[in-house]
Amino acid sequence: MKDALGAVGSVLVLGGSSDIGVAIAAKLAGPRRATVVLAGRHPQPLESSAAAVRAAGAGRVDTLPFDADDTGSHDDFLTKATKHAGGDLDVVVLAFGVLGNQSADEAGGDGAVRLARTNYVGAVSVGLAVARLLRAQGHGTLVVVSSVAGERVRRANFIYGSSKAALDGFAQGLGDSLAGSGAKVLIVRPGFVRTKMTEGLPVAPMSTTADEVARATVKALASGRQVIWVPGSLRAVFIVFRHLPRFVWRRVPA
């Protein structure tokens, strides 16, 4: 149960080995030794994430198999995750996602479709299931890790960007649908974060770290904000970007 100052008793991370997801879980769980459930596809990385979260002071930490693409399994998965959380899910972090390889995916193959399936279809399926659960609980927050890439989709990575645009729109509507239910959605829009997803890519301006994203997220959970940008200054930047003429925007590099 979340307390008056935002401390929580349990956290579930979907995409449990995500650098950003793990950082959020560690920051949230530390102060009160909260229970953490890390859910993902590959046991090995999940175990090392679990060790990191334990080291940050979490109480009980469990790992569970979860595949965003296997939409038929999501309801059963959540029932199991709730048991492992020891009762209620105070915070659920939707952190899974893939970046894809824009030029290869444009050229052919099923990469683009798989990306869309994970980043959007998978999120819609599990997002709705989480919302039903939180609604029945009468409290709890779904943190959706969106991206500035969806705020205005760029030529250079429009497959990924459009999946985040869709996810962001979904999360906004889902949050609205939960008004008055006690449950909430917090949308987190990071810029370039130095994680394993962006490893080897040229670092973009105003880049940030998983830790910073986590810090801002924990703060927003306490204050009850519904949308945050990390770093916060990106909000103003994107107000400008949104109004750039198309012929300029399409030349913005990756």
Partner: peptide
């Protein structure tokens, strides 16, 4: 009550390693 959920020791004896 929410109080009982927030302070689980109200209903159940604390187990080692449980929430702080």
């Amino acid at each position: 009550s929410d109080l009982a959920r927030r302070l689980p020791a109200l209903l159940d004896p604390p187990t080692p390693g449980a929430a702080r």
